[in-house]
Design a protein around this nucleic acid. Sequence first.
DNA 1: GCTATATTTAACCATATGGTTAAATATAGC
DNA 2: GCTATATTTAACCATATGGTTAAATATAGC
Lengths: 125, 125
Amino acid sequence: MVKYSTEPLDATFAALADPTRRSILSRLAESTLSMGELAEPYAMSLAAVSKHVRVLAGAGLVAQDRLGRVRRCRITPGPLRDAADWIAEYQQFWDDRLDALADYLEETTGEDTHGYRRTNHRRKP
Amino acid sequence: MVKYSTEPLDATFAALADPTRRSILSRLAESTLSMGELAEPYAMSLAAVSKHVRVLAGAGLVAQDRLGRVRRCRITPGPLRDAADWIAEYQQFWDDRLDALADYLEETTGEDTHGYRRTNHRRKP
DNA sequence: GCTATATTTAACCATATGGTTAAATATAGC
DNA sequence: GCTATATTTAACCATATGGTTAAATATAGC
């Protein structure tokens, strides 16, 4: 119903969920670009691209510097680190797939190991 | 207007953009859980949680095994790896912040270095 | 078979999202 | 100052999202 907190991670992941926005970030990783340059390759209006940049800026992923009448965009990757850190918590799962499968089988066959299965594994190798 | 491709990354990042869904993933990283167990801590209906799990399952992040009338959910982290890989492309930016700032200043002062600024830097240390 | 339990599905609602075109704003440059 | 250019903002629209309650479905267990 209501938005709970609009945590930074919400905004970051939501910003990354759109292919146009990922493309924009990817291009800004190569060089800074004005709005016009940014919009050129996409089959949508400049106004639409402007909105996408606003979403990225709202998530703190992009900043705009005004140089005269042109707005030059650059990437500000801080929030990406937090997103990467969040995901990294799960890295063990794709590192140790067989292990995870073993745990899963163990669990579904009924053993009582509530919540403490992978305790002795290293989180970040 | 129309959805372009609904690429896997779109679905993955969109799924991660909701705090309830991140919480669900986080809990499923500890152990598998039935729908009822999953829903218990949240201030929303079981139907709402069921929808969240559907979104996660649609993104390939969660699978459900039917054991009688109970659906036991488990994490399937494959898509997380792809998301992490996507983000990792930008890691140099938060690794080398000062370097990036230098490049930015260089660019805004007008040097013609189109697109090949960070060429000699290691992408993945 | 009947009843209770676990879960999903349907119908609905309010708000968010991603796009449009047209108007507004601000600086460039003569 | 006037005109062109770069960009944003406004008003609008269709669809998606995240929630609700009520009904439907399916198995458990006597």
